[in-house]
């Protein structure tokens, strides 16, 4: 390991690849269509990224702790349904809970987060107590959660009809702005700030890194691994619940198909954003950039009218490229 800090352009590119790719993408798209470089576009992209950011932050906790979570997307779907069903207008023509009065907008959000905490806690318990490998444990809970989503969605009198007629105050969470900044973007920023503080300024954050870095060493040094895993999964669940209600508010609807495959996008964003697959490494800024990159690609390629099939090619190349660089970053340090 070198102690002298000399500017090495190659190392700089490797260390900041994700941000450079993002800048390059924006430049390329702007050259093709100059109107891309505008505040309106930036706001659109941030609004579309907001839900994904919150999901990815939850996912990051788990990846940093050296674990995996495949149930996030379905948890977003279930909590979107739960929050939408509690956020309907009193006079909705097809009411999920007939007779339910109009609730203040924060109630569905809190209930969704609570559902997330419970399901996340279940994941944590299966992983930490039953010692089921995280990948399989959360694959199982993904199915369980989707099953519950479908059952809930198909309940009388709703019978699998997309939910609608949400209250204006709830919809405002996803579409209204304050001084030009959409609430949904503010929520994502606040979440990022809280996660950053938790990760870098608290004992808990350091313990999560320690567990992810080397589980046995963490155990030996007196960290309660069970507790840490329960906390990371529950925290992630709370964030998935928040994301679910944000998605319902933004689209003013919900179905059981919501959130499908979001967990895989979140994992991809985390990895592209510099989280180590092995655990113990990950930053809020990197993951944020990872999410934004994918949204810039899908928004930008639609913006310049490129066939949607190419979006997948570009996304795939970026994932491979980012991970290839990432591998070099750590092998260089070790």
């Amino acid at each position: 390991m070198t102690t002298k800090k000399k500017f090495d352009p190659k190392q700089f590119i490797i260390n900041n690849a994700i941000y450079l790719i993002l800048v390059a993408l924006v430049i390329i798209i702007t050259v093709i269509s100059p109107r891309f470089f505008s505040l309106d576009v930036a706001r659109d992209i941030l609004m579309q990224s907001a839900v994904r950011i919150v999901v990815a932050m939850g996912c990051m906790f788990i990846i940093v702790s050296g674990s995996a979570d495949l149930s996030g997307g379905r948890m977003v779907g279930l909590t979107a349904l739960v929050s939408a069903s509690l956020a309907q207008q009193a006079a909705a023509s097809l009411k999920f809970w007939p007779g339910l009065p109009e609730l203040p907008a924060f109630v569905p959000v809190l209930v969704a987060m609570l559902v997330g905490v419970v399901l996340g806690g279940f994941n944590g318990w299966v992983v930490a107590k039953l010692k089921v490998p995280a990948f399989l444990a959360t694959l199982g809970s993904q199915m369980i959660i989707f099953g519950f989503s479908s059952l809930y969605f198909n309940m009388e009198p709703n019978r699998s009809q997309p939910l609608g007629s949400l209250t204006q105050s709830f919809r405002d969470i996803g579409s209204a702005s304050l001084f030009g900044v959409p609430y949904i973007v503010m929520i994502a920023l606040v979440v990022m700030l809280i996660v950053w503080v938790l990760q870098t300024k608290t004992c808990l954050g350091k313990e999560i890194f320690a567990v992810g870095g080397n589980l046995e060493a963490a155990r030996v040094s007196g960290i309660n691994v069970f507790k840490i895993q329960m906390i990371t999964y529950s925290l992630a669940g709370a964030l998935y619940g928040l994301a679910g209600s944000m998605e319902a508010a933004r689209t003013a609807s919900a179905t059981s198909a919501y959130g499908n495959a979001y967990e895989l996008d979140a994992i991809a964003s985390c990895i592209v954003g510099g989280c180590s697959i092995a655990g113990g490494v990950g930053t809020v800024g990197g993951v944020f950039a990872g999410v934004v990159i994918f949204n810039v690609i899908s928004y930008g390629l639609t913006f310049i009218g490129i066939s949607p099939y190419w979006q997948n090619v570009v996304k795939g190349l970026i994932i491979i490229g980012a991970v290839a660089l990432d591998v070099r970053k750590y092998s260089a340090k070790k």
């Binding site: 490998p133 990948f135 199915m143 499908n260 895989l264 994992i267 655990g279 997948n312 795939g316 994932i319």
Partner: peptide
């Protein structure tokens, strides 16, 4: 850890398909 990396790598491969919006989750 190695197994986990493999598994996550696999998840990543899946995510490629997912970016394209494959419509169904792994079905039991």
């Amino acid at each position: 850890k190695k197994a986990m990396s493999l598994v996550l790598a696999f998840a990543l491969v899946l995510s490629l398909a997912a970016c394209g919006g494959s419509s169904s989750a792994p079905a039991a």
